[in-house]
Simulated scan of single mutants.
Amino acid sequence: MSLLEVTDLTKHYPVRQGIVMARQVGTVRAVDGVSFRIERGETLALVGESGCGKSTTARLVLRLIEPTSGTVRFDGQEVSGAALRTLRRRVQVVFQDPYASLNPRLRVGETIAEPMEVHGIGDAKSREARVQELLRLVGLAPFHAQRYPHEFSGGQRQRIGIARALAVQPDLIVCDEPVSALDVSIQAQVVNLLKDLQRQFGLSYLFIAHDLAVVRHMADRVAVMYLGQIVETAPKRDLFAAPRHPYTRALLRAIPHPDPRRRGQVTPLGGDVPSPMNPPSGCRFHTRCPFVQDICRKEEPVLRDIAAGTRVACHLADTLPPFEAEIGEGLSAVATKRLALYAAAKDRRASGIR
């Protein structure tokens, strides 16, 4: 049984016109029939362009917003009503912005202790000891508990956010682009910290990111979203080696190649993302797809199994030409450099250098 199962999750926002007698003139299909699962101890990365619905999906899983339709099952139990309180304790979140996600009026110790107070965990003395333990765990010192958020750097604030998420001993942490607001060297430290914590506590992650080099380092499986729908899911190794959906290929092509002689050889994906108020008929990607056929304009593809662990929503997935090897080589070179940076950051952490 999977830890998290999401089935046909949908979120539509009505668009209204007028002030007094506002009437609905349209619907924004922010998330439109998303399904996926996360196993215990697994990291599922959710990737796609800005505005495709990744963060909305995360908030639906957390029930920070109510879905229009669909179900979320956590540990076999549908999340609704009385089950929500259990979900709040077992599923936590690390937000994208380390500056906006912390209350500037609370000391760090109060911020980390607050979830334990809400869920009635321990007494004041045990919570204080737990706060100090968590601060050490994320690479900060116990005396930092008495400081305010404005006294910390962005990377330190994100460590505080991670400590807060760990306070109630969750099973799943939703990481909503946790490193995108940080510079590369700090990203390395935070990514290594997340992986260390996963090994230590058996955590599962729903990891939302734009940086595919980070995804390649963090994820076990990858789900690709486009215009509110998942178009491909696959194990990390398979997706980066042989992507089966044209949009996934376009995302990989967008990664800068470290060899300057090859940087101008790839034609970027043309066109703009269609409006989620009026998505195209058939395949939503057909207006930008270089392989488009008549069937793509008429019939919406379903997410189907085409290989072990790989599901693709594309009529032409079985007939596409092989993925260009040089793109994979370029990604490998970028990822190798990034991994070297992560390893250096880990060595500095082990030696006590922050």
Rank of each mutant, 00 (worst) to 15 (best):
L44F: 00
A343H: 14
R348V: 01
T7M: 07
S2H: 13
A345N: 11
G264T: 11
R89C: 03
K236M: 09
G76M: 10
R244F: 08
E128D: 12
R338D: 13
T233A: 00
S80G: 09
L46I: 01
T71Y: 06
T57V: 12
L172Y: 01
I121D: 02
M1R: 15
L64Q: 12
V215E: 02
T57H: 01
I255P: 14
G155W: 04
T319F: 00
A100P: 12
T56S: 06
L166W: 04
A325G: 09
A308I: 03
G328D: 09
I230F: 04
V138M: 08
Y205T: 14
G154W: 02
A250T: 08
L331E: 13
R157D: 12
L46P: 00
A22K: 15
V28P: 05
T287G: 06
A213P: 08
I173K: 02
P274S: 03
A100N: 11
R89W: 04
V25N: 14
P104M: 08
G120W: 05
S351W: 09
M21G: 10
L206K: 12
G81H: 07
A58P: 00
C314T: 10
E110K: 09
S153A: 10
D32Q: 04
T248P: 07
T68P: 02
P321T: 14
H245I: 13
P14I: 10
V312C: 11
R29F: 08
E78D: 13
A325F: 12
